[in-house]
Design a protein around this nucleic acid. Sequence first.
RNA 1: GCAGCUGUAGCUCAGUUGGUUAGAGCGCCUGACUGUGGAUCAGGAGGUCGGUGGUUCGAGUCCACCCAGCUGUACCA
Length: 499
Amino acid sequence: MVEESIKSGKLKARLPRGLADRGPAEIAATRNLVERIRSVFERYGFEALETPAIEYSDALGKFLPDQDRPNEGVFSFKDDDEQWLSLRYDLTAPLARHVAENYRNLVLPYRSYRCGYVFRNEKPGPGRFRQFMQFDADTVGSASMAADAEMCMLAADTMEALGIPRGSYIVRVNNRKVLDGLLETVGLTGPEKEAQRLAVLRAMDKYDRLGLAGVRQLLGDGRKDESGDFTRGAGLPEADIRTITSIFEPVRDVDDRIAQIDLRLRESKVGQEGREEIATVSRLVRAAGYDSDRILIDPSVVRGLEYYTGPVYEVELTFEINDDKGRPVRFGSVGGGGRYDGLVARFTGQPVPATGFSIGVSRLAAALAHLGKIETGDARGPVVVTVFDRGRLADYQRMVQSLRGAGIRAELYLGNPKNIGNQLKYADRRKSPCVVIQGDDERARGEVTIKDLALGAELAGGAQERADYLKLQDEAQIAVKEAELVQAVRAVLERHGRR
RNA sequence: GCAGCUGUAGCUCAGUUGGUUAGAGCGCCUGACUGUGGAUCAGGAGGUCGGUGGUUCGAGUCCACCCAGCUGUACCA
């Protein structure tokens, strides 16, 4: 690369893949999204917390001690004292670090939220980036299922606050203890079965995408996808496959679902604990008015394989979206979370129960943009004061300052002011509401011309001849005394509605 | 990582069975038309055809390898 740039004499401007620049429209949309999420989270009583983007790799739990380096999925580098540092890949591990470090000073249960970019060094895809924004809420120091129930309700409320109608999203809830009970029931216990257990959980997690048939293949010998690639299965015997997939069988309602789990996991102590927890969460959310059209018990939810210990939840958008070529796009999960009772204990040695929920802001923003729930672009630009006579820059800049002083976004034309046409073209592209012009004629009368660009475009729309066009343009502008500049500009802005 | 597909101008794409100087539309720049966005008209810039080798008298076109992108899949805290 360096060689290449020497050869050609210039550097190729390029963005690393999986990363994106953001323009004004996207920034505004994200800010708007974040503010709405924040207002819901604050209404639930969570308080703000910010932690840095960089942590010690071991604090993130992604250090591979046997290889003396961090996991490849995280961006890592060495500090000058040879200690490994990493960019955070979620907001939960840093929170656990913060809580452990400040345990004595925090009011428990500690309820906090945070928002920020996280980084993952993995293959990007549609709606998947190597830097993306998450918005998290966590309750640390409470083992109560009420804390988990609340996370589910928070998720549902947040979706609706973002304008996603009920029925277009679903919060699906499961419990890791139920899954553990299921594994126990088919005899997958003990350390030597670890790999198989993971394979089973991964297979179950794909139920929504691959359906029953796909999951059965992955639990058994394996599955070949449409590109011809083969995925090895968990290698379970048919009887065990049937036992596991029986948990997916459709049921009429929540009570049946819980009864079904009870029946399947009759022999498993941990499974029964899980059933108990699910039933409690379910009872709490229902009492608060959240029915299964919003919060649904779904035994196929798995989430991460690393640290969840109890309830797990996932928010999914359920409407179909097409991309710009008309093909359907699946956005999948836009948020999720669960209980992680062991995470803080890694630092303190004392078990600290905790549960949290995380929203993928970037993915959600992409989905909402497709839905048309986010205004993209069309933000008004500033008022442009044109330079008619380049010897009088000081006068024009004074006009700009008087507009700015009145709280109006305004700027002096800073390009080459060789003619007025270019300056109007510039203002047009900036989506300026109006321009200010003062040539010799106006100057002699102590006036300025204010041209309403939107009105001009509207009036001149049908003109064919140049002469007609110019005449119509003339009607879109007014001359006012210099002293009335601010007032007249404000009148134009009000005519078009301020933004 | 694995598999399939695709790489030609800023963008979207043509480019014949291998044949002279690689094109179009849009966009961009300059100018004309009164001191005014648009339209119109007249000009213009911009490409090592992803890269490197090979086959051939001759390669955008065929072959090999590499790189990048897309899609699926695996992994995913």
